[in-house]
């Protein structure tokens, strides 16, 4: 039985606590496209790298993105070459940098799923309220349900059920998975991040598979409600609207990303900075795409541990500490 966890934090906690080794042999856990760093398309990173080369630009980013390789280089490389790239804990910190550097243009590298994107939307609303004009966001945000549908529909991926991401679900609610369970007959269990949450979630998922039912269950009731956080979604969709999006490894998925609404186009970094980006070529031999879909394991990759290592990652799954390859490298 193949169960896919669609959240990098689950992937890491499963590896860190050694849950995988304690599971009955019949259950195989595979890791899906649950790490925003890993699924950010190479050309989106290339664009950001071109932008940091422009004079008087300060790039702000979550620490997660620093080592992610684009076609030629990463933020870490660009910083070494003198670019002003700053790690922030919150998008609001980036806005504060914009306030205190009025002569510079501040760009925030926007990545993440539904948990993160509302916080960026709220920051943009705040920038508008304060009439801050030197603050821009690169919108590389992704939405989880369309990716799950793509995997559920795929002929190549054989998954029996989804361990759904707890914190994305805090925002989108369990209702967001109903279509996946009903139409695509995929059992879905939303679970939290403690070892016990994860194990309980897997148990309920196995029960569904065994009974031959497919519904959405919540094993993280203390945080996740049916309707999620409606206020956050309202803010998110006041600034952004859905758009097709390229996922590293998975390709283009319809309506799986976010772009700026017209009213907020002044904050769109892609519009503000017209940069030429080199044509992205994915590294030879890298099977991150297959790994992200759960078709292959990192152990099947010829580059894994030989050329592709955390200190010099080739593919995105080795970059993020929650990437599948990094988790395998570290813990297996």
């Amino acid at each position: 039985m193949k169960l896919m966890e669609v959240c990098g934090t689950h992937t890491v906690n499963i590896a860190r606590s050694g849950i995988k080794k304690l599971l009955p042999k019949e259950i195989e856990l595979i890791s899906g496209p649950g790490c925003p760093v890993c699924v950010t398309d190479q050309s989106d990173i290339d664009r950001a790298i071109e932008i940091v080369k422009i004079k008087d630009v300060i790039m702000t980013t979550f620490g997660d993105m620093m080592r992610v390789p684009g076609t030629k280089s990463s933020f870490m490389d660009a910083k070494r070459d003198g670019a002003d790239i700053r790690i922030v804990y919150s998008c609001l910190d980036a806005l504060n940098i914009a306030c205190s550097n009025p002569a510079k243009r501040i760009v925030f590298m926007g990545v993440g799923f539904e948990t993160t994107s509302p916080t960026i939307a709220a920051t943009i609303l705040e920038a508008k309220r304060q009439k801050i004009r030197n603050f821009f966001v690169l919108s590389n945000f992704k939405l989880i349900p369309p990716a799950l549908v793509a995997i559920a529909k795929s002929d190549r991926v054989k998954v029996n059920g989804f361990v759904c991401p707890g914190h994305v679900s805090v925002i989108i609610g369990s209702a967001a998975y109903v279509e996946i369970a009903k139409r695509y007959k995929m059992p879905c269990v939303i679970t939290g991040f403690d070892d016990i949450d994860i194990v309980k979630g897997i148990k309920r998922l196995v029960e569904q598979v065994k009974k031959g039912v497919s519904k959405v269950e919540i094993e993280y009731k203390r945080a996740v409600k049916k309707n999620g956080n409606a206020a956050a979604r309202r803010i998110l969709y006041s600034v952004f609207e859905t758009a097709d999006s390229d996922w590293r490894g998975l390709g283009r998925i319809k309506k799986s990303g976010l772009r700026f609404k017209k009213v907020y186009k002044d904050f769109d970094a892609e519009r503000e900075f017209k940069v030429e980006i080199p044509k992205a070529t994915s590294p030879k031999g890298c099977i991150c795409g297959e790994v992200l879909q759960g078709i292959e394991s990192p152990l099947d990759c010829k580059l894994f541990k030989k050329v592709c290592k955390p200190e010099r990652p080739i593919g995105p799954c080795m970059v993020s500490s929650e990437g599948t390859c990094a988790a395998y490298y570290k813990y297996e």
């Binding site: 990098g8 925003p36 760093v37 929650e322």
Partner: peptide
């Protein structure tokens, strides 16, 4: 392996 950086993921 590499220095840890504050992360959100």
């Amino acid at each position: 392996e590499t220095d840890q950086l504050p992360r959100i993921c």
